[in-house]
Design a binder for these strands. Structure first.
Lengths: 264, 264
DNA sequence: CCGTCTATTAGAAGTGATACAATAAATTCA
DNA sequence: TGAATTTATTGTATCACTTCTAATAGACGG
């Protein structure tokens, strides 16, 4: 995930094209050319050229009526194949199922996708009322338990720009106004080993605890999270629920070859 | 889906890169450089250059131990976002859930992704023993009910190369040895309005019926399918099961603005 | 330890992406 | 309805970037 490919010779146009895709994945459901061009920071004519090729490849499709652009069928294909193939995700999927069975709460699995955290899948507990989680969309870095966990353990250079953007756009939660605030927040997460968001200002009525999973290089690769309606979970540090979460994350880390203990 | 972008100015390198991704999505789980290069029909050094950029973008990742290549986290991100955004898929997902409830059989939803059909999601019936369906992987064109439905209704130029390759590689089902055989098979599917694969040589012990869904341009955009273990479904043309399937597909087509009736 | 196989890097030659501007198409508003 | 404005698409000369060949560096197996 962090090989030094900074200086390596790649193919510029390809990276430009991926920038467009990134803009589309992060942006709204159906985008106009000028919006895509603006997000990807290039003149519309250039974006258009790239979109032609992305459409030819099936990654993007254009609504023939409105001439707006959307992600296309090949994007689906890629994602579904990746879901099926990435080892850590396979293991992660069974981990959140097991954890759901153990604690009977909503569990979810997230990866980092360099726009931010993405929920890959979630499992609902066996009870009538549950929280609904949306997969695929990119979450906030400071405003979600998952994001905070990634931000706490990822190398700072990978997250700094996103955090800065979040702060500047006012999307950061109350009380986080400077990079220093953010650093303090994340240091707290790191010290505790999990990130707890509960009954506070971040998401009304929802509480969540997220824990990191590390790979054999001791880098964070997944986040496991418990989500519930406010008051439904026992969020104290030594509660059975939190213990199960920590154990699930640690067990998964171990299976992935990690030798690192997040904290405790 | 079939705008004439043949002659338009795109960005070649981007399409080359997407060719690599296509090779990776179609190929095996973990590929070596030379295999990728071979599948994408280019020298390894070239493939390597492209892979550097694909890795930088997060679409591909490289196992640092084996230096083999896999799809990466951004591929997941894209797919999950697309799953959530494409209108027809949203409607399709609820259609297969409803159909599952109506007939209590395994149902699935597939799209065409220009390598072939891809199962997007499936729903299991409420019964102890069900067939397991894998999402994401690309199915055969002649050797699956879904593939046959797409092949029957897609314009021939989109499917011809794939069919030819399948026949030449011996992956086509018994009895299909020439393009003529294939055309005859697909004409039969078209006449019947659905494709039935049942207790024959294609997949041992599994039977399936697939029906096409059309969009407002009367192009095929989705396929809905029922899957079951051999003998578990009533596959006669006028059975309640088949009727429900046809109705579900027709209703979905109607919602997507189609005015076309597949057949009777 | 040597030979073979695979991944990665280097460096000229010429192809193809870029930017800017023009046009076409669609949308808005009077 | 028609003019004005926004948005999408196409054209073209220049120069940066990709391409190819071939060399190097690592890994693996015997």
């Amino acid at each position: 995930m962090s090989e030094e490919l900074e200086g390596k010779h790649g193919v510029q146009s390809l990276e430009v094209g991926m920038g467009i895709l990134k803009a589309m994945a992060t942006g709204k459901r159906s985008m106009m050319l000028k919006d895509i061009a603006a997000s990807a920071d290039m003149p519309p004519s250039k974006a258009h050229r790239y979109l032609v090729s992305l459409i030819r490849s099936g990654l993007v499709e254009q609504d023939p009526l409105t001439s707006r652009y959307n992600l296309g069928p090949f994007a689906l294909n890629l994602g579904l194949v990746a879901l099926d193939r990435l080892d850590r995700i396979r293991l992660g999927l069974s981990a959140i199922t097991d954890l759901r069975d153990a604690v009977n709460e909503t569990t979810a699995l997230a990866v980092w996708s360099d726009n931010g955290p993405v929920i890959v899948r979630w499992e609902r507990p066996r009870r009538p009322i549950t929280v609904n989680v949306v997969t695929g969309t990119t979450l906030g870095v400071l405003g979600s338990a998952i994001g905070r966990v990634f931000a706490a353990w990822l190398p700072e250079r990978q997250t700094e720009a996103l955090i800065r953007r979040e702060i500047e756009s006012g999307k950061a939660p109350l009380g986080v106004r400077t990079m220093e605030d953010a650093r303090a927040l994340l240091a707290g997460v790191k010290a505790r080993g999990v990130s707890v968001i509960s009954g506070d200002y971040v998401i009304r009525g929802v509480e969540a605890v997220a824990a990191p999973v590390f790979n054999f290089k001791n880098e964070i690769t997944l986040v496991i999270v418990l989500v519930g309606v406010e008051g439904s979970m026992d969020m104290r540090d030594d509660s059975p629920t939190l213990t199960e979460l920590r154990q699930a994350a640690a067990a998964l880390s171990a299976r992935l070859g990690a030798t690192f203990e997040s904290a405790g």
